[in-house]
């Protein structure tokens, strides 16, 4: 009996994957257009922005924090990179780097407020969410920026592999997931991210600078929001001052659905990819069977509450 109990967490970590398969099976039974390589390719394309945002979000949530600002910071990133290219004639790579620098700065701001002034991440990022949104509107004059250099669209291109197609952006997202997964598993810094989320006081007493770990995580998260901004620009061909609003909560939803605990210190980053795909499959599938987008929002809301409930229950089971 004890053996079965000790194996439960590993079964629980398969949960998101099983949920994804069930969702796919359900939509395949409802729509014959769902189960096709074109549609799967489309789902991945739709998921890549949320998927990369969710990487940054996962890092923050692993430290028992939360980042409510991720989507808005990303929107600011899209405006900075497109406007820098359009207004100052910067080449695509330089403009993109400026955009990522802007989102990383917001990450640094979040991190400094959390570590130096010791404010709760929830409140800090609620504030920076609004600040980022206002900056985006002011800087863009609430105008969408479309006159961008061709180089910025490149990641939106699609690679043909026989029947299947895969976007370069999707390949980048998958590569980032594998890299961050390895970093979290195999490096001391990665393990310290888990330790800080698990028991910050014990971690501090072992001589690890918990402030440095937290600050690093928020800055790194900002970098990922910048990469997500780059993908968003490549996908839509524009910088959208009103972007990032659905992606903001979708990223948190993806992390939670992927089995990362909101209480910190537990979770596998690859779960967030599965979580992002669950969100993507629901949005895609519900559209295919002609359900209005309001119900898609309703369903994602229910999914989040289910996922958090499972998280809460499994924690109680262990203690």
């Amino acid at each position: 009996m004890k053996n079965i109990i000790s194996k439960l967490p590993s079964i629980a970590s398969l949960g998101p994957f099983i949920a994804l398969l069930l969702a796919c099976a359900f939509f395949a039974s409802q729509s014959d257009r769902f189960f096709s390589t074109q549609n799967f390719s489309l789902i991945f394309q739709q998921v890549m922005v949320v998927g990369v945002l969710a990487i940054g979000q996962t890092l923050v949530i692993l430290t028992a924090g939360i980042d409510l600002s991720c989507g808005m910071v990303m929107a600011l990133g899209t405006i900075v990179m497109t406007k820098f290219a359009a207004d100052y004639g910067l080449s695509a790579p330089v403009a993109i780097a400026c955009g990522i620098a802007a989102t990383a700065t917001f990450g640094l701001l979040n991190g400094l407020l959390v570590t130096r002034i010791k404010l709760p991440p929830f409140i800090v990022t609620l504030g920076t969410l609004n600040i980022a949104f206002a900056c985006t509107q002011l800087y863009s004059h609430a105008q969408t920026i479309t006159n961008i250099p061709d180089g910025m669209n490149w990641l939106g291109n699609i690679l043909k592999l026989g029947d299947t197609t895969i976007g370069y952006g999707v390949i980048l997202m998958l590569a980032l997931y594998v890299l961050v997964w390895l970093w979290l598993r195999e490096t001391a810094a990665g393990r310290h991210v888990y330790a800080v989320g698990n028991n910050p006081e014990a971690t501090r007493l072992t001589g690890i600078s918990t402030e440095k770990v937290l600050l690093g995580v928020y800055v790194l998260a900002g970098v990922f929001y910048g990469i997500a901004a780059m993908l968003s620009v490549a996908r839509t061909g524009s910088g959208d001052p009103n972007g990032g609003q659905t992606e903001n909560l979708d990223a948190i939803t993806a992390v939670v659905l992927g089995g990362t605990s909101l209480f910190g210190g537990r979770g596998v980053i690859l779960g967030s990819l599965v979580g992002a795909l669950i969100v993507g499959v629901f949005r895609n599938g519900l559209t295919l069977i002609g359900v209005s987008s309001v119900y898609q929002v309703l369903v994602t809301g229910i999914l989040v509450i289910l996922a958090v409930t499972t998280d809460q229950m499994s924690r109680k089971g262990i203690r």
Binding site: R191, H192, N198, N199, A202, T203, I208, G265
Partner: peptide
């Protein structure tokens, strides 16, 4: 660093991490 280790009453360990990881936490 000077070679004095303290064990605290309130179990200063990271619960979700393995025993080996806890033993080497911060000294990997």
């Amino acid at each position: 660093r000077a070679g004095i280790e303290t064990v605290y009453q309130d179990l200063a360990v990271a619960p979700a991490m393995s025993i080996a990881e806890n033993l080497f936490l911060g000294r990997e």
